[in-house]
């Protein structure tokens, strides 16, 4: 039997809450693609930032299911309606996550620091004027400011603080967000990166990128330019060439 994901007919809704769309499906596809690895990862604390309708966190809980016996789920959203809708979606599927209405992970950052094994984020990535960022309503689900990076750039340091030593971050980006630059920035903090899902529609090109702490990368930082290229570095080069190939193809 294939692993279950959230069913659209059971996903609750509210006029002020973003409904599952292509981006949500791409993120769940990435989690499905990594299911075996996620189970072998034996996560305890799993967390979604910006849970919206609850489609993704519900799917994660279903994908890992009873095989991930020790998994415990948190989900946050800045929109109070989203937290309520997520609760309804979770209940409709018979799974549980603890919900907090908050900005990114504010209030959880001190005590959850270094404890999150799996973090999932579908950020507000749409390029908009900066003034449109920061509402508590529907537009908080998509308004991303200049290059769509305004909120993304706030989430990344929070993720760095929350992730455990073995922590994985799955995050969705639009090509306009410059995921290549984000990967380089994360690399400076010691993270490896890999595209798990790439999806192009007429309107947008989406990448789901997985980040993990890579001790080899930090070591390279200390021994700058002296060591021969190690596997993770080649991995990054592959990723970068992959992304630039994709953007090249988009220009055709």
């Amino acid at each position: 039997m294939p692993p279950r994901i959230a069913q659209i007919r059971l996903v609750s809704s509210h006029p002020q809450v973003y409904e599952p769309c292509d981006d949500s499906y791409a993120l769940v596809d990435a989690l499905l693609a990594d299911r075996t690895k996620l189970l072998e990862h034996h996560p305890t604390i799993c967390m979604e930032v910006g849970c919206g309708s609850g489609y993704v966190i519900t799917s994660l809980a279903l994908i890992l299911g009873s095989e991930a016996r020790n998994a415990y789920y948190f989900a946050t959203d800045v929109n109070p309606y989203a937290a309520t809708v997520t609760r309804e979606t979770l209940e409709a599927h018979g799974v549980h996550a603890e919900l907090v209405t908050t900005n990114i992970a504010s209030g959880l950052e001190k005590r959850l620091s270094g404890l999150v094994d799996v973090m999932v984020v579908n950020p507000p990535y749409v390029p908009t004027p900066d003034e449109e960022v920061g509402s508590l309503g529907l537009s908080s689900a998509w308004a991303g400011g200049e290059n769509g990076r305004n909120v993304i750039d706030k989430i990344l340091p929070v993720a760095d603080n929350l992730l455990s030593d073995k922590g994985w971050l799955y995050m969705l980006f639009l090509a306009e967000n410059d995921p290549l630059q984000i990967c380089l920035q994360m690399r400076d903090k010691g993270y490896g990166a890999k595209i798990v899902v790439q999806r192009s529609t007429e309107e947008e090109t989406l990448h789901v990128i997985k980040f993990w702490r890579d001790p080899d990368i930090q070591m390279e930082g200390n021994e700058a330019n002296l060591t021969p290229k190690t596997a993770p570095q080649r991995g990054l080069e592959f990723l970068l060439s992959h992304i630039s190939r994709l953007s090249f193809r988009e220009r055709q």
Binding site: R87, V100, T101, N103, S106, G107
Partner: peptide, 12 residues
């Protein structure tokens, strides 16, 4: 910080 329907609201 109110808690409604089991959801704490930590918005500042």
């Amino acid at each position: 910080f109110p808690v409604n329907k089991g959801i704490p609201n930590m918005l500042l």
